[in-house]
Nucleic acid binder design. Sequence first.
RNA 1: CGGGGAGUGGCGCAGUCUGGUAGCGCACCCGGCUGGGGGCCGGGCGGUCGCAGGUUCAAAUCCUGUCUCCCCGACCA
Length: 554
Amino acid sequence: MHRQSQLFLPTERQPPADAEAVSHKLMVRAGLIRQIGSGIWSWLPAGWRVHQKAAQIVREEMDRIGAQEVMMPVLVPAELWKRTGRYESEELFKLKDRKGADLVLSMTNEETVTTHAAQIVRSYRDLPFSLYHIQVKERDEPRPRAGVLRTREFIMKDSYSFDRDQAGMEASYEAHARAYDRIFDRCGLEWYAVESDVGMMGGVGAHEYMAPCAAGENEVALAPGYAANVEVASAEPQPVPPLPDRIQGELHTPGASTIEALAEALDVHPGCLLKAFPVVTESRGLILVMVRGDHRVNDVKLQNALRERFRPAHDDELAEHGLVGGYMGPKDGVELILDAAIAPGRYVVGANRPDHHVVIDVPEGERLDVRTVVEGDTVNGHPIRIEPAIEVGNIFKLGTRYSEPLNATYLDENGQERHIWMGCYGIGPARIVAAAIEQYADEHGITWPRALAPWDVHVVALGKEAELKAAEALAEEVEAAGLAVLLDDRPLRPGEKFADAELLGCPLRLTVGRRALESGRAEAQIRRGRVDHEGGVPLRGGGSAVRELWESLP
RNA sequence: CGGGGAGUGGCGCAGUCUGGUAGCGCACCCGGCUGGGGGCCGGGCGGUCGCAGGUUCAAAUCCUGUCUCCCCGACCA
């Protein structure tokens, strides 16, 4: 039992002035965390209990699929990162020791864990296995924000699977996916898994586990049976009205150098226009990417479709090809990519001379899906909606991305040397905590899911002597029934104690005041929804009744 | 990195434009009243005004530099 009078639990009436996100405000107000620098936070006792609960759920489910817990260092020689080509990462903290040797602070642990695999694994008999740890990560984030949602130092569970071949990797990936399903269910979160960007990592596959909430940094496209990060989402476009017949041939369009201005000047739907996005890639030079006027080019999808990096074209490169900013259109000698959402028909495009556009039929060109989906597009006939969500976990098929540079190999049954097939899987317990707050907080404070609450039951004593004694006795019985109890034994007024209890958000509050002494029953209030439990619970011998009530909570 | 904002007691803020030796609410300490939703009365403690230079008889206030934090964007294995 913890006595609130002795606890380091600094609750605040007002949120920090600079806090925006609900979870940020409430975590500080409820005394869970305190800031020490931009994106650098300490967890105070109550907050750490919650974090530990999330971490323990993760641990149990990792163990359940046979992953083995280890502990790898934060500080590692830069050499390994140089070998995998990740040393240049801007997010990587780099430092030197007194001898001048380069070191890095790990932001993830592929280099370390793969090095161990390379040291240890000899034979196909040594595979498969998975290792995980729950350890601090350091990232030089360009912009930490929203309390604990995006920080420079944070704790992450990362696991790594090692398999003989692709099929083995797929199986490990599936095992992790099922473990993740259980983890987020057990944590009481609303969540879903979405397709995510595999970027330059080999394109074998990745999913993100998303918890929808207002403070989320990701946009997720959702339809029945479909969920994807908008970075990679594909959907059927909504049709646009055809270009009116009155608009023909060459158009004098002075000053209409933006889609909005042009659509207004011509009085047509922006989707009747085509937007040109000139990019340059190393292997293909300048390419004109065109999307419907009401759509936006999606950088991630474009890069994936191009299978190489690109950058926006510079002005001199445009001039060199005879393209005119604001009035760009298809032109002989310029490679053309058309977004898949451009339906056949007539469109207004730039005429490649100032103040002029021209009506053309959809030209020939490479067709690729490179636009960002918008709300109302359809998947299998169902309109999608887009909502913000926070990424609480991800799973990633790495293939041999790290085993090759770090030379992690084994001998197969035929004595052939092969690279180990890997997967990596992350979870941020702090984000689970913040997401739970975001999803369930009400105007009074946090309402924890049972699985994460810092204490199961908050016993509030109103009164100094008899009430406090009775509250202590009740708290002991509840503890004896296997529940963690926080006892508010502070000599404060009822209003303050109730307000703090609601801020902290333990799932069940038992109140012991004069009324309880008179009736022999403590009032019980369920935090989520602030529902009074009819009749309360017995002051004496109430342990099992409390336990039963608690088990019925979300 | 671009744009915007902010650093004054533990928290939230005023004071800065117009220079004159720092104030309010909450919290905290003491005493009293009160006692089921942040109550009341009285008395207190607590601040090198982010830091460093400069101007001035005098700087929280003006000037220069610098650090830090927040928000939007870019970025984010």
